[in-house]
Amino acid sequence: MLYLKSAKKPSDHRPPQWPQLFDQLAISAKNPGLKQYYQAGVVAPETPLSDVSLVALDIETTGLDPARDAIVSVGLIPFDLHRIYCSKARYWVLNPEKPLTTSSVVIHGITHAEALVGHDLKQILPELLLALAHRVVVVHCRQIERRFLDIALKERIGEGIVFPAIDTMEIDNRYVRRRFFQRIVQFFGRTPESIRLAACRSRYHLPHYTPHHALIDALATAELFQAQVAWHFTPQTWVDKVWH
């Protein structure tokens, strides 16, 4: 049990003052894209959910360890409480093995279509950060997206990233009481996120989607959050009730 306690991060209990933190990071960040991202700012904690621009984000990885495993694909879809906007959805397939540099593309004359498959995160980073700017990220199990992106960025541009995130899995845990032994099983058994996502969705009578596709999982997460707000919150609920 001691281990269980120490595993919890104190930061989870006291979320940072996100607007102030973004202001500081906007000054300290070196990478221009990242600087821009922080400069775009973030909504105040008292903002009602109905006024918050959201973006559902999902990344697929080769494993669960950010130090060893790599990102395979990234999907995101902007939304708000009213609608999910498929026309603004983005999806990238990344090459987890050989990071392609701009020069190697020129040298090897790799075609555009092939390059699409072989992107490195560094190449898509400006677009990714632009898509996330001024939106609150919604994920299912926030540790994965946060840690993978943070470490991947550190590896490529020498500085990490932090961002507020709404976690649909955490919300689900708040409202669905599980039996004690189920929690234990879950702790040791590590049910894959996407299966847990499907289970959460079924509680709100959302349809079954094929899992393990970053964009579809992002869409599924966006729908799940809309449903959770309809059931557990109101459009007037402050965003700081749900973000971390």
Binding site: F79, H82, R83, I84, Y85, C86, S87, A89, Y204, L206, L219, A222, E223, Q226, A227, A230, W231
Partner: peptide
């Protein structure tokens, strides 16, 4: 068309 649709969830009774 699928790339242009919007999606929304409505709780029973809304």
């Amino acid at each position: 068309l699928a790339a242009q649709v919007e999606v929304a969830y409505y709780k029973a009774g809304s």
